[in-house]
């Protein structure tokens, strides 16, 4: 990556609230800010219900944002556009969905599924070229060209996910949101699909937003990773740094919870095991939303919401432990620990 990276997407204070009834509002995404650079893979992780999929869908304009701004190539995504501009916008952003069984129309043949975007955007006029393009796409994702005449039920999960990828690629997008694209697949098939996504990125200069809860796969595919908790961003860092020096206590617990495929390490490891479940996003805790499960929680955490700060270069975190104005209690505790060890 060069130093002068070009921002492809700027997400500023994005909020998406769902009204449940007259009184209750579910704050699925509650003020997240980050950028995605051209050609990179940005991984978004968090437990179920943390708002990562909602964020991905709001960026795609599948949901309209409650508040905030999303700029794609300098243009506001949610601004009113003419029909023509909207179409062009839709072409440049595509999505790969989680469930390869539910995201393909069972009554359409594979070639019609793949070519639907091409037809809508009128990218190709002659039927001959259309067939050629479909065959080319099938080949790119590692399928056979006579697969085109078949229906989705004739394919396995891994093959269906490849069809979903071919459909996304058909309109030559610049940016792809992949929402848990591999979590429904077997381990050996996951590796096949991830390798395919990486190869396509190299060859076509794509930018990915990769949403997942499998942290080891996210590390493998992403350049930078953002960790979400209860609708808020807890930490963003380069993926190596995030896995080696996580700052936020939530990230630390999350990484410590990944089971490592090495029995010797597993036996000697001391895990941080979080207590309890994720609180309801309808009625999140005051102050820092993680404080109810945080092993480092201080009094101030219940009162003041932590600020989103760049603690180290390109390493953002929202936690009072790293805020000089609020971390007196944490420091005192740490000093006590050190004293105890010395005595």
């Amino acid at each position: 990556m060069s130093n002068e990276r070009e921002k492809l997407l700027e997400i500023k204070d994005l909020k998406k609230h769902f009204k449940l009834d007259r009184k209750n509002v579910l704050k699925a995404v509650d003020g997240i800010t980050f950028d995605i650079y051209k050609g990179e893979t940005f991984g978004l992780v968090g437990e179920s219900g943390c708002g990562k999929s909602t964020a991905g869908r709001a960026i795609m304009r599948l949901y309209s944002a409650t508040e905030g701004k999303i700029e794609f190539g300098g243009e506001d995504v949610h601004q009113a556009k003419s029909k023509k501009m909207l179409k062009e916008f839709n072409r440049s952003m595509q999505m790969i969905f989680q469930d390869p069984y539910a995201s393909l129309n069972p009554r359409m043949t594979i070639k019609d599924i793949i070519a639907e975007g091409i037809d809508i955007h009128a990218l190709i006029q002659s039927p001959k070229e259309r067939t050629a393009r479909i065959n080319q796409l099938l080949e790119i994702v590692g399928l056979n060209k006579d697969h085109g005449n078949r229906y989705p039920h004739e394919f396995s999960g891994g093959q269906r996910q490849r069809i979903g990828i071919a459909r996304a690629l058909a309109v030559s997008p610049e940016f792809i949101v992949a929402d848990e694209p591999i979590s429904a697949l077997d381990v050996s098939i996951q590796a096949q699909v991830v390798n395919l996504l990486k190869r396509l990125q190299r060859e076509h200069g794509l930018t990915y937003l990769f949403i997942a809860h499998d942290l080891s796969m996210v590390k493998h595919i992403s350049d930078r990773v953002g960790v979400m908790y209860l609708g808020k961003m807890a930490e963003i860092a380069k993926s190596d740094e995030l896995y080696h020096e996580p700052l936020h206590p939530y990230t630390q617990a999350l990484i410590s919870a990944i089971p490592i495929a090495n029995p010797r390490i597993e036996r000697s490891r001391e895990r941080i095991i979080l207590e309890g479940d994720v609180p309801s996003p309808v009625n999140p805790p005051s102050g820092c939303s993680f404080r109810t499960r945080c092993p480092l929680a201080m009094d101030v955490c219940a009162k003041v919401e932590p600020t989103w700060q760049e603690y180290k270069e390109e390493h953002w975190v929202a936690c009072h432990v790293y805020d000089e104005n609020y971390n007196a209690e944490h420091k005192a505790r740490e000093n006590q620990k050190v004293e105890r060890i010395h005595v």
Partner: peptide
Amino acid sequence: DVTIQAQIL
């Protein structure tokens, strides 16, 4: 989720 998985294991 992984954190809950760690609890159950």
